[in-house]
Amino acid sequence: MRRYDGRRVLVTGAGSGIGQGIALRLLSEGAQLVAADINDEGLKTTIEAATEEQRARLHTLTLDVADPESVSATVSAAVEFLGGLDVLVNAAGIMRAGHTHELPLDVWNKVLAVNLTGTFLVTQQALPHLIETQRGVVVNFSSTSAFGSVPYMSAYAASKAGVNAFTHAIALEYVKQGLRAVNIVPGGIGTGLTAGLDLPADADWSLLARLPGWIEGGMLGKPEDVAGAVAMVASDDGRYITGTEIRVDGGALM
Rank of each mutant, 00 (worst) to 15 (best):
Q32E: 15
V34H: 03
V233Q: 01
Q134P: 00
G178V: 13
G162I: 04
Y174N: 00
I47L: 13
A35T: 13
W205N: 12
L58S: 09
V138Q: 01
D86H: 14
R55L: 06
S142I: 07
D86V: 08
R239I: 15
L58Q: 14
A97L: 06
V139G: 02
L33K: 03
G15Q: 10
M232Q: 13
L116F: 02
T51F: 06
H99G: 04
R247H: 09
I215H: 01
P104D: 15
R57L: 15
V150M: 09
T51V: 10
G221S: 08
G21N: 03
D249Q: 06
G136D: 13
R2H: 11
D249S: 10
K176R: 10
A169R: 07
G250T: 15
V122N: 00
L63T: 02
D236K: 14
L85Q: 10
A35E: 10
Q177W: 01
I170F: 01
M153R: 09
A31C: 12
F141S: 02
Y240M: 12
A50L: 13
H101K: 08
S143D: 03
D249A: 11
L207Q: 14
E52K: 10
E48Q: 14
G178T: 05
M95G: 07
D5P: 00
V233Y: 05
F147L: 03
V230E: 00
G190W: 05
L58N: 10
A126Q: 08
P200Q: 06
E224R: 13
G118H: 05
E173H: 02
G98D: 12
V71F: 04
